[in-house]
Amino acid sequence: MKGLMRYLAAVLAVLCLMGAAVLAVFCCVTTERFALEVGETRMLRDLQQQRIDQAAAEMTERWQLSPELLTPWTQDAARLQSLAAVAWWGDIWSDAEADLAMPSWLTPQQEAELVAAIRADEGFIALTQETQRRAIARDEVAYAIDVAVCEAVTPLRRSVTEMLLTAAQEVVPLPMIRQAALIGAGVLTVLAVLLMLLAHRAAGSIFMAAGLMQAALSVPVILLDIPGMLAQLSNIAVLQGQNALACLGILWYGAAAAMLVLGLLIIGVKKAIGRDEE
């Protein structure tokens, strides 16, 4: 009976360590640094800028705009908007008052300037009627450029993302969720240590089992094939998904390896001490 209790305490300790690791990874995901890792690769940036340039070229052709008219508003847009998105992600998880709406590319003033520039363009004037120009310049070009840049950088439906974040914020403020996860990770670690004391002389095996099971937990995630799912939806999202998984993988397997090594060390040291005593 005593043996069974010790065994159950050891299994619970392994579960606590794994739970702490999951919460710690969640805390890492909600940092600016993680968002930067997701959007950092050159290939992704080039693809995003290509998508933006393509949208601008289509608009230029459709509304007979001067070839270079939209360039100042789309040049380097992928990089700058990406930095804005990274800062936004960091803000919403650290400041309860932060704006949950994803950042837009053009400020109202920039949009007004762009509309004025389009309305003054000769090709545009020749193609459109006086009464329609303002509406077309604003809705079909300036707004469309804003949407194209935002969707190229963060290929997420903005309305749904905002709705989900607002719903979560109404229940518990996002920064508080992050803090709760951090505190939860600490509490679970302490609990695991207490359970290890109950499990009596099995700390090494508990750490090793936690490391092994943590590595094994990546199997269901690999089987889910999230990049494969994303590939059916968006080629920008699939690159971002791969970056995110690579970043999480380093953290996850790093922590698993650390626990394995710690377990081996504990067992090794105990054996060495045992031999000395003999």
Binding site: Y7, V11, V14, L15, M208, A209, M213, A216, G263
Partner: peptide, 12 residues
């Protein structure tokens, strides 16, 4: 270690 992993692996 394997005895500790077994129930969790089976559950997974």
């Amino acid at each position: 270690t394997l005895a500790l992993c077994a129930p969790l692996a089976a559950l997974m």
